[in-house]
Design a protein around this nucleic acid. Structure first.
Lengths: 203, 203
DNA sequence: CGCGGATACGGACCGTAGTCCGGTTGTACG
DNA sequence: CGTACAACCGGACTACGGTCCGTATCCGCG
């Protein structure tokens, strides 16, 4: 060993070495183009080739940055999602901390219904294959922890983990889109249903 | 008009004219082959080409008979599903008629959990795209009517239609598969969760 | 039995998601 | 400034689902 150890050659595991400049440029170009194409043609009609071509970039680059089609759509949703996430983590009550857990849960569901319905076409296009749907979706994991925490705080009995999954399932984007579009239920009605559900389960 | 009207040239609408012999033969050949391939390689690894080739039939024939990949898988599930359907429609209580609605609902959920878990790989392979998932699945519609009827009979208040969807969502094959495989929950635990859910909602 | 039209057949064809790899470029370091 | 190597790039390629349409087959009727 020499007196001064050389700078990290194997970068600190877990701290990815920082994105190269060209890569970062391409990422944002791709996101811009994808957003534009989604706005123009609807999320369902946007192909990966079109995004690549629109950003004057090879297909491989799109996949290296975003993994797959769902990953790209999820990245598009990431920005919109952050606002909501901050709201229920650290925003004002009743969504944020400060209100009783039951009130927070009611507000959380209402907010997520709103969010999922607002971006429904993106969510439908972003849907992962069934075996990855519940594992490869960071926001979903966050929602689950949040609900789980509220349930624990509410000191309701029962299988908290399972109850969390059930509640989350009733806020699923595809289900909400169906209730709204095929069944013709208004967002108000759906939200009222959520409130009623929470009341019955925790009241 | 002559004395005796000629036989139906435009066949009675709604009564499809009966399947041609060769078509019927191909259907059953295709189902046999598909079942064998699923057993051998798992539903996820069965391609439509392989099924067609295995039945010594053109690809077009597969699609004409079953519409799409999901349709083929659903057809495979049809047989297994019928037993369960008859059981809750006209079988012995508590699953069938005769028991109080709440008991029937508990039994129905337990049965559907069992069924969905038993054939989970087929259900995952049979999953429809999000916009068709809740409309193009006859068994699901039947389940919904059944739950809805039980809720009505139980004279629980609230939005029955919405409550039905929520309950059905918690029995979704993909969700159950996740709870079982990724989360490691036993079928007993999941079933207990369903019972608890029903108790909280209707108790 | 023979005819005619509805029904079914097959497999070439298309579009899209996702993979692969030889060549290029950015960046840290001396 | 030069070098070396990891990271990145592009686009040809593969696999698969689904469509199309000219041809062959079945079957009711005379």
């Amino acid at each position: 060993m020499s007196a001064h150890t050389p700078p990290v050659l194997l970068p600190v595991a877990g701290q990815p070495p920082r994105e190269r400049a060209d890569a970062a440029r391409n990422r944002s170009r791709l996101l811009d183009v994808a957003a534009r194409l989604v706005a123009e043609h609807g999320a369902a009609n946007v192909t990966m080739d079109a995004v690549a071509a629109g950003a004057a970039v090879g297909k491989g680059t799109v996949y290296r940055r975003f993994g797959d089609r769902a990953g790209l759509m999820l990245a598009l949703l990431d920005h919109a999602g952050r606002a909501f996430q901050e709201a229920f983590i650290s925003g004002p009550p009743p969504l944020g901390p400060g209100a009783p857990p039951t009130d927070r849960l009611r507000a959380f569901g209402a907010g997520l219904i709103e969010h999922h319905l607002r971006y429904r076409d993106l969510y439908l296009a972003a849907e992962l294959p069934p075996d990855r749907r519940y594992t490869d979706d960071p926001p979903r994991a966050l929602y689950a922890r949040h609900i789980s925490g509220l349930l624990a705080a509410a000191e309701t009995g029962g299988d908290t983990e399972l109850l969390t999954e059930t509640l989350l399932a009733s806020l699923d984007p595809a289900l909400l889109a169906h209730l709204r579009a095929q069944r013709g239920m208004s967002q108000e009605r759906i939200t009222a249903g959520w409130t009623d559900l929470v009341d019955r389960l925790l009241g």
